[in-house]
Design a protein around this nucleic acid. Structure first.
Length: 563
RNA sequence: GCACCCGUAGCUCAGCUGGAUAGAGCAUCCGCCUUCUAAGCGGACGGUCUCAGGUUCGAAUCCUGACGGGUGUACCA
């Protein structure tokens, strides 16, 4: 349920009764427990505008609010804060909602079709740590959008076109006897080809010729190209499956897909007067910024051109209303220019949201870009394997599992830790990679949440059938827990609007923490606990588990019943 | 040079669109298992919110300007 919206409504209604138009109806969580559960701070600013006494207005509003059965207590404090205590009965009546399959969360009313563009691996290369954040954050956001009712079209804009393929094909021709069947070969070939390209002008020219040949549809070139792509995609898919990321081959719309549209697009932009020629290149100009080049003087196209063609396709063919690019913050200028160009060219109108969901880099503990000891890029495959290996070590230490069970839990915990660590910090910050912190049981980690979930399940397994479906809020801990459980929808909505997954992890951490405290102090199955109380606490525990599971699933993280 | 992002406890990070005495985890120290998973919980210690102005009843939060760090910046993606 949308608890905060309900509170805002209550505020709005009470102002209405007083014939006052409030500046805001936004309600915040109380800063201190003594203040109650929520506080409304909007009176002060309003009073200033009306040139009236804030305390007096607050008193009048409070008087109306007191009539609302939602509140147990309404108090005016300080210069005009209105402190609100939610009635226990309200929580008791509504908590059971959180037990349903959507953990009590409704879909949005205004459902839209949204394209989420993420992951975008390079072809002819293994996925590396540089692809981690886009893949993990993008998938989590796609899940979130979907869960709230949007129709999500995942798009994997792979780099499957361009000079690197000319290089590869040229290198293959030179070394016709060697054939790459494995991606690892392909990658080695790529490096060798790159070296030749950089060092040998003749080779470079040949490589460029191959690009032209490829673009003009030469059969043999295309055949080789297809082989490279398929080999790489097979590897990519393995990584997605390991990560539990919901990208598939159907979601792939690489740069090559837009290739045939590029000449038309450039012409269109020229005709509309958006693009102009300068020094032989077709450019779009901006104030105080370098121009965006969409066609080189040699006639070649650039990734800006492809991005524009992709926007056109996504708007016109896919009918997207929101297009979210989950891409490295370093490209923010590029996207600003591309979006601006799309608007100038009227490829998109104002009703369509184009957004760059930027994120920072992955750094090591010393603050430098995260690399192997030798300075190479870290392969995503190795990163995942290492996460699972470490998880197995930690998990297996004090517990007895069958081999199968250990393997399964290690995967869930290891992969979960890897993803959660990335998702739990504000995406705009650079992210410091730390194995120990990631797999720690203390603090805001996946394992802490998974542990809380498993613990609850352990209780539920031992518990008798719940007879009375009635929640009784007995103390402040239970009340806080219930309030938190019912705030799930508020948080998801905020995370949706801001495209910020860390809001969800923060919430889950608070929820799990509150449960742990509740659990320490309020016995459930111990002797002497009356059956109504026991059942009520079981319901609270069950609702907590349900929300944790749902929240983690949205983030793309699994849970295990036993840990 | 210009643009964008970041600057909060020793370290890693929150801080809910301007509210009351700025919060977590790690690290350090101290408590709590004959009883539901101690892989847990509680407490202590730790802060000129980089600095300086401004806006106002009220600023970590908004504005301006410094300083420090990162990133980008005409034919690579």
């Amino acid at each position: 349920m949308q608890l905060k919206s309900l509170l805002s409504e209550a505020i709005r209604d009470s102002f209405k009764e007083l014939n006052i138009t409030p500046k805001t109806t936004q309600v915040n969580e109380a800063a201190k427990p003594e203040f109650g559960d929520f506080q409304y701070n909007g009176v002060m600013a309003l009073a200033k505008e009306l040139k009236e006494n804030p305390r007096e207005i607050a008193n009048r509003v409070a008087l109306v609010l007191k009539e609302n059965p939602l509140f147990e207590r309404v108090e005016v404090a300080g210069p005009g804060f209105i402190n609100l205590r939610i009635d226990k009965k309200f929580l008791e009546d509504n908590l059971l909602q959180a037990l349903d399959s959507r953990a009590g969360v409704r879909e949005k009313e205004d459902k839209i079709r949204v394209v989420v563009d993420y992951s975008s691996p390079n072809m002819a290369k293994q996925m590396h740590v540089g692809h981690l954040r886009s893949t993990v954050i993008g998938d989590a956001l796609a899940n979130l959008f979907e869960f709230l009712g949007d129709e999500v079209i995942r798009q994997n804009h792979i780099g499957d076109w361009g000079t690197q393929f000319g290089m590869l094909i040229a290198y293959f021709e030179e070394n016709a006897k060697e054939r790459a069947k494995e991606l690892s070969d392909l990658e080695r070939f790529y490096q060798a080809a790159k070296k030749r390209f950089d060092e040998d002008e003749e080779f470079a020219t040949k490589a460029r010729e191959y690009v032209v040949k490829l673009q003009s549809g030469d059969k043999e070139c295309l055949r080789l190209w297809r082989e490279f792509i398929d080999t790489t995609l097979a590897h990519t898919q393995e990584i997605y499956d390991k990560l539990g990321v919901k990208l598939g081959l159907d979601d792939v719309r690489g740069e090559s897909f837009y290739n045939s549209d590029l000449p038309n697009l450039v012409e269109e932009l020229e005709q509309k007067g958006v693009a102009k020629e300068s020094e032989g290149a077709k450019c779009i100009f901006f104030e105080d910024k370098a121009p965006l080049i969409i066609q080189k003087k040699d006639g070649g196209y650039l990734y800006a051109t492809t991005d524009l063609a992709a926007i056109k396709y996504r708007v016109q063919e896919l009918k997207a209303k929101r297009i979210s690019y989950v891409v490295d913050a370093r490209q923010s200028e590029h996207f600003k220019q591309v979006f601006e160009t799309a608007k100038r060219a009227k490829i998109v109108d104002d009703s369509i949201i184009l957004e760059h969901i930027a994120f920072g880099m992955v750094l090591d503990k010393s603050g430098k870009p995260f690399k192997t000891r030798e300075g190479g890029t870290i392969k995503l495959k190795d990163l995942i394997d290492e996460a699972v290996r470490r998880a197995r070590e930690i998990i297996g230490k004090d517990r007895d599992y069958s081999d199968e069970e250990l393997e399964h839990i290690a995967k869930v915990v290891g992969v979960g830790a890897l993803k959660y660590a990335d998702l739990s910090i504000n995406r705009l910050s650079n992210y410091v990679f730390d194995w120990d912190k990631m797999l720690s049981l203390d603090g805001n980690t996946a394992l802490y949440m998974q542990y809380a979930y498993a613990r609850i399940n352990s209780i539920l397994r031992k518990a008798p059938e719940i007879e009375s479906k009635k929640v009784i809020i007995g103390d402040e801990l239970e009340k806080k827990l219930a309030l938190k459980i019912l705030s799930f929808e508020d948080i998801l909505n905020r995370a949706y609007i801001e495209a910020m997954p860390h809001l969800i992890t923060n919430y889950l951490y608070e929820l799990a923490g509150l449960f742990m405290k509740f659990y320490e102090n309020n016995p459930i199955l111990k002797e002497g606990v009356k059956s109504e109380i026991r059942d009520s606490r079981l319901l609270l525990a069950k609702a907590t588990a349900n929300v944790i599971k749902k929240g983690l699933n949205i983030l793309g993280i699994e849970v295990v019943e036993r840990i």
